[in-house]
Design a protein around this nucleic acid. Structure first.
Lengths: 110, 110
DNA sequence: CGGTATCCACAAAGATACTG
DNA sequence: CAGTATCTTTGTGGATACCG
């Protein structure tokens, strides 16, 4: 997920790169609701495997749009939340959601 | 590119699905500038192969966001442009571009 | 609980050649 | 010019097993 740092990309690509894949969007959606534990994300996102969830969370953390907080407890507890930067994506997610709604209606009504 | 119609997806996923991949975004960027011929797109998008360009154009055409117009000439001429629906994506692309710019600056300034 | 480590499958992308 | 047809290569995700 994080191997290719060869880029300089155009701005749109940069943005898309951060949120493009299916899982990242779903993770963002969950975190927009508030802080979540790893297990909550896992069960809240239908069909995601542990590996893929971890990979995406790491990647998003590297990108600086989410924050990871591990509590030194037994059993372990790890919480994820949006960073300030991540919060600034909210308008974009919202506008995509609005557009998607309109598109789906269009499809359904023919 | 077009095999998976198994969905009902949430609105954000729908939108992301249409524009998520790297190539589609670059194609959209080109077409936002105006109508382009196949060859113009090919040379305007660095590194894209003929096959992948074709695949993505077909997919986007199916999704209804671009239009294909083939002129019955020799040699063939095929022009691509955004559909009305495609044009409505403009605000989203723009906001992603803005966000990406800010992000890149942030990265560069540390 | 929240991971990491492997192995495998399959889809997507690249390269190349050919065509209406 | 604008594709299609193949073949090969790559990579992302699924399944499983194990660990601090």
């Amino acid at each position: 997920m994080e191997k290719k740092k060869e880029l300089p990309l155009c701005p749109v690509e940069t943005t898309v790169g951060l949120i493009s894949n299916k899982w990242k969007i779903l993770i963002l959606r969950e975190l927009l609701k508030g802080t979540k534990r790893f297990g909550e994300l896992r069960s809240g996102i239908d069909g995601i495997s542990q590996k893929v969830l971890t990979q995406n969370l790491r990647s998003m953390e590297e990108d600086g749009i989410i924050q990871r907080h591990a509590y030194p407890e037994v059993p372990p507890r790890v919480e994820y939340s949006l960073s300030d930067l991540g919060e600034t994506l909210k308008p974009i997610i919202s506008s995509m959601e609005q557009w998607g709604l309109g598109y789906q209606e269009m499809i359904n009504n023919g």
